[in-house]
Design a protein around this nucleic acid. Structure first.
Lengths: 252, 252
DNA sequence: CGATGGCTTGACATTCATCAATGTATGTGG
DNA sequence: CCACATACATTGATGAATGTCAAGCCATCG
């Protein structure tokens, strides 16, 4: 129970500049990713694209707040996003990091159950609740897609509960790095498959793993000392011995 | 990271005696609960009832194992069930407890992602994967219901991540007891709203909260010492000051 | 070049896990 | 019906992991 009250800067402005047409290259690419992820017919895909609103958002800006009316869902194109919950005293749990191809903010209830902030500047597509519901109502396959996504998210959540409840600090870091690496490999451009970018701060990692910044940092240092990883820069990791890391992570 | 390798008895036999017709009173009642939980038209409800297979299972018996082919989903009628994951070395995370009205085991993939065991003897309804999928295919509203259920489960999972990552031992216990109490109140018979049965063992509670048995027990003792709860028997709790408990639990 | 924010490292305090013993309830067989 | 056996729960003593406080380092950016 790290008790360190995440220091929140002025993230008040939920600003997000919609960038007009040109939903071309990257956008099509992202839909391909989504199509790759779950079976989506060409028809559903094009209808989805029709209601998508491309947008950009700066680093450390809020995408939406917890409890806010959920009037849209988002598909991340590029950049990184953190989804989190806060306790009244400021303790924070980052429930997930999102990257290109990840979908977030779909709420069946009227309100977001968590908050989301861009970590780096990010490009996204917004789907307004109205449009999405309308589309869902006459595209049963799309509803099926959402069910798949929700189920997959649930599986990830369970993985994370195991991590939070059962693992030691170094095990947590090992698991997290492997998870990031796998997610990164799926993202497409795997220049060096073992070199993984860490767009988020140590405090983000800590709040994701149920640790303090210091403990997260020490665990990384320890993994480096054991020769399992390298930290060429603070914001990137090289996984030198993925297999040993996986052992350490406890098969997770 | 409690490192205590849950001692597993012989839970090998996944035995489950199907009890024939008489899916009357309790069964209808449970469907009402489900109908109360999510909007379900009378048609969908009766078609669901048509494919339901009532069954019973003894205490501490496995309902299904992790990785097993997922050939059915279950609705708990009476009794308590634990859903959990194991690490190779035996560490266990109980991701959720299920009670009357809870639905579990629906997998879009072919395999269960977690294991489930009855805690107490339990009565359930089984829905075979084949039948359920067939029903889903021509009942779009039912698919919507499942999406609602998955979303709700996801919300609970996020709550639990906050608990596991952010809270102290006593805060965890306070949160857990309040959660149980609320769940119990919804169950129907609220004789004494403040007296909550604890069907699970201390080790189950510990493995759910990311603690050891001893710490869980001590935290309960501490709450009792503060006058917030009473333990008339080891398997039941009286919430004497729910409001103070909620304060302690951190608004969760 | 200096300032700022983030990362790392160190010393110390605290919580919680571990090891071990005792207490308590439940069921079984004499 | 009682004595015992067994599993579960509680309590105590101790140690290790990790949180807390504090200082220093490093990189980036103006």
């Amino acid at each position: 129970m790290p008790h360190h009250a995440a220091v929140h800067q002025d993230l008040t402005s939920t600003a997000a500049a919609p960038c007009l047409p040109r939903k071309q290259q990257a956008w099509a690419l992202t839909c391909l990713e989504l199509a790759d992820y779950v079976p989506l017919g060409g028809d559903e895909l094009s209808r989805l694209m029709a209601i998508a609103q491309p947008m950009e958002i700066g680093g450390n800006r809020a995408l939406f707040l917890s409890g806010e009316a959920a009037d849209g869902a988002f598909l991340v194109i590029t950049g990184a996003v953190r989804a989190f919950r806060l306790l009244p005293d400021g303790r924070r749990m980052i429930t997930a990091f999102m990257f290109g191809g990840d979908f977030l903010g779909f709420a069946v209830g009227g309100r977001y159950e968590f908050a989301a902030e861009a970590i780096t500047p990010a490009r996204l597509c917004r789907f307004s609740r109205r449009h999405l519901n309308a589309l869902l109502d006459d595209c049963p396959r799309l509803r099926n897609t959402l069910l798949h996504l929700a189920t997959e998210e649930l599986r990830l959540a369970q993985d994370h509960m195991v991590l939070l409840g059962c693992k030691s600090a170094t095990e947590k870091l090992a698991s997290f790095l492997l998870h990031l690496a796998r997610r990164n490999a799926r993202g497409g451009t795997q220049a060096n498959p073992a070199l993984v970018p860490l767009p988020m701060a140590r405090s983000d990692i800590a709040d994701h793993l149920g640790l303090t910044t210091e403990t997260a940092s020490r665990a990384l240092t320890q993994l480096r000392a054991k020769g399992m990883i390298d930290l060429p820069t603070p914001r990137s990791v090289a996984l030198l011995r993925p297999h040993e890391l996986a052992m350490l992570a406890g098969g997770g």
